[in-house]
């Protein structure tokens, strides 16, 4: 069984069984596949270099749209123009985080420093956003319904299996957040006032 992330003297430590690591790696890989831009023939190399994509369109897949949402509400033209200026870079940033997070899964004992922990949490978050779209989690009530699926023996169909996976990644991310928040608190704390009678 996986163990929750916790802070140790060496960093943020976690533990995943080989099967759990394979699952998480596969999930990261699936999101990378969704996000990698299609190869474009005869592309303007300068435009590619600076991250422009003149042909970017609003994603028709709701899960991809959740990963790459509109930056502007109620103005489709401005939203699309902004997407063409920024979406390629955003995809690359996300793919970079997902690849880096995959590398952390090389052994069952995971050990992350603060930056790696942040990257891992972003990768898990993108996985959860996509799973949530597939599970049609649109409200708190939907989320509560999914959270009730906890036992592998309950998983009788694809949706329930996905719900288990969603709950597992939620648990994993939440434990990572507790470790990261504790580190952030320690970083932000001023050294305590020296005791004394000044």
């Amino acid at each position: 069984m996986a163990k929750a992330f916790r802070n140790t003297r060496k960093g943020i430590a976690g533990y995943l069984e080989p099967g759990e690591r394979d699952l998480v790696r596969k999930l990261f890989g699936d999101i990378i596949t969704m996000l990698e831009p299609d190869e474009v023939a005869n592309e303007d190399p300068l435009a590619a270099m600076v991250g422009l994509d003149e042909k970017a369109e609003t994603p028709s897949d709701p899960a991809l749209f959740r990963l790459l949402p509109n930056a502007v509400n109620n103005d489709d033209d401005e939203a699309l123009e902004f997407r063409r200026l920024t979406e390629r870079s955003l995809r690359e940033t996300k793919v970079g985080a997902l690849r880096a997070a995959s590398l952390a899964l090389d052994s069952s004992r995971l050990l992350l420093d603060y930056e790696q922990g942040q990257i891992f949490s972003r990768a898990l978050n993108d996985v959860r956003l996509v799973l949530a779209q597939r599970l049609e989690i649109e409200s708190t009530e939907d989320a509560d319904r999914i959270h009730e699926v906890l036992e592998p023996s309950q998983a009788e169909d694809v949706e329930q299996y996905l719900a288990l996976v969603y709950n597992f990644t939620t648990w994993l991310q939440e434990s990572l957040m507790q470790a990261l928040v504790d580190q952030l608190d320690q970083r932000g704390q001023q050294p305590p006032e020296p005791p004394g009678d000044q």
């Binding site: 989690i137 989320a143 608190d185």
Partner: peptide, 21 residues
Amino acid sequence: DPVNLMSYVSFVFQSYFGYSD
């Protein structure tokens, strides 16, 4: 949205914007 964890959202505001806890 019903997906992002409260702890995660708060952490992002703190770590990215540098806001207090």
